[in-house]
Amino acid sequence: MLINSVVLFLRDALPLLLFISILSAIIYLRTNSLGWLVKATFFGVLGTVVLSAFIDRVSEGFDGFGFELLTATIHIMAYLSVLLFLRFNSIVLATVAVSLLLSVHGTNLYIYSSGFWSSASVNVNNALLIGSILGFGISFSLALLLYYGLSASMMERWSKLPMVVLALTAARQITEAVYFLIQADWLPTGQPLWNTSAWLSDSSEFGHLINALIGYEASPSAVQVGLHLLALVIPLFMIMKLNQQPTVTEVTP
């Protein structure tokens, strides 16, 4: 049970926290404020509450694939928000992206956690609690270190690095969306192009980290690889094309 809750956090909290840390590093250096994150957290928690309340109805929709399709849609919207953020440098778009992802990952955490906790004994609950602390601790520490690393890089000659990392995590949103669309049979499963499970398993801690950062899959299909590369090239091209220090405009959502 301990491992289950650790994996739950590595799968849902880690990608979200890494995404937040990348955006925070970019925005904080320009605005010296993390007020946008408070707003994003508020809207994200609100989204989690609403989504969790209607999860049964959502799941029943679209022949039982309602939640998968909603999750895929939210990931695509988050990706588009990042693209628009890169283009227009508006904090509102960063707030929207984080709120959307917090809603979907928060709902996942809520569903699985409540499922585990409600059906467990005291001993198992202890294991879940410790596992949650370990999972959250590892995820939060990685996000914090990434935040400080990127903040430092922005002040040095690697100033474009956070943008590139943001492009990588943005592409990951499309990989996630593709994964859920395949589950909902909206996209073909296809044969895996390769299998690197022996080198780096999806279920290992490092596998989760790489997945959270760049959407790593040990055995991806051609559709996944193709769409991931396309999703990566667009923001990278935008970063190269802009090639100027953008100015973030503070707009209250």
């Binding site: 370990l134 590892i138 520490s141």
Partner: peptide
């Protein structure tokens, strides 16, 4: 940074 590093290392080791 120090707390994050120590948390990461000790939690990973605990895991």
């Amino acid at each position: 940074v120090i707390i994050a590093t120590m948390t990461l290392v000790s939690f990973y080791a605990a895991l």
